[in-house]
Computed example of a mutant assay.
Amino acid sequence: MPKEKKLKLIVENFLDNDGYHAVIALTDVYTGKPDFKDANDAKEKMRTWVGKNPKFYPHIASHDFEAWLLPYRTTIQKLAKHNLSAPSGSPETVNNQKPPSYWIKEIFRTGKCRRDYDKVSDGVAILKNNDLMIAIKACPELKAFVNRIISLCDEEKIIS
Rank of each mutant, 00 (worst) to 15 (best):
L26A: 07
E44S: 14
F56P: 07
P58Q: 04
E4L: 00
D64L: 00
K33D: 12
S160H: 12
K143I: 02
E44N: 11
M1Y: 05
A86F: 00
A86P: 00
I107R: 05
M46L: 14
Q97K: 13
I159F: 10
K52R: 14
K37A: 13
T48N: 12
D35N: 07
K55Q: 09
P71Y: 03
T93K: 13
K37I: 08
P2D: 14
A25R: 07
D18H: 09
P99S: 03
I107F: 03
L69S: 01
K5T: 08
D41G: 03
W49G: 02
P58T: 10
A138T: 01
V29R: 08
P87G: 03
K3V: 03
P34Y: 08
M46W: 05
E156Y: 00
D38C: 08
K112L: 15
T74L: 14
S88H: 06
K3W: 03
P91E: 10
V29T: 13
L26I: 14
I159K: 04
L152A: 06
P58Y: 09
P71N: 10
T74R: 15
P54S: 15
K128C: 11
P87Y: 00
A144G: 10
N83Y: 10
E12C: 03
D131W: 03
L79S: 07
I76D: 01
E141F: 13
K55H: 06
P2R: 00
E4P: 01
E92W: 08
S90T: 15
D28T: 04
L15Q: 07
L84G: 09
P58F: 02
K33S: 11
Y72E: 01
L15C: 07
D154T: 04
M133E: 13
L69R: 08
E141V: 03
V120I: 14
K33T: 12
T110S: 12
K6M: 04
K98V: 04
M133V: 05
R148T: 15
H63V: 01
A125N: 13
H21T: 13
I60T: 08
P100T: 11
K37N: 12
E156Q: 14
P87E: 02
L152T: 14
R148V: 06
V50I: 07
N40Y: 11
N13Y: 05
G89M: 13
E155T: 08
V120D: 11
L79W: 13
I24G: 13
G123F: 01
P99I: 06
V11W: 07
T93V: 02
F14G: 09
N17D: 04
D35Q: 06
T27K: 06
Y117W: 05
A42K: 09
H59I: 00
R47P: 00
L7P: 05
Y57F: 15
N40H: 10
A138L: 08
V50S: 12
L127V: 01
I10H: 02
F145T: 15
A61I: 11
I159T: 00
M46D: 04
P140E: 14
A144D: 10
I149V: 13
I60D: 05
K78S: 08
H82K: 10
V50E: 01
I159H: 07
G123L: 04
I150R: 03
I126N: 05
G32I: 01
N40F: 06
N13P: 00
C139N: 12
G32K: 02
I126G: 03
A80S: 13
H59S: 14
G51L: 05
M46T: 02
R47Q: 14
N130C: 09
D122W: 10
K78G: 02
S160Q: 08
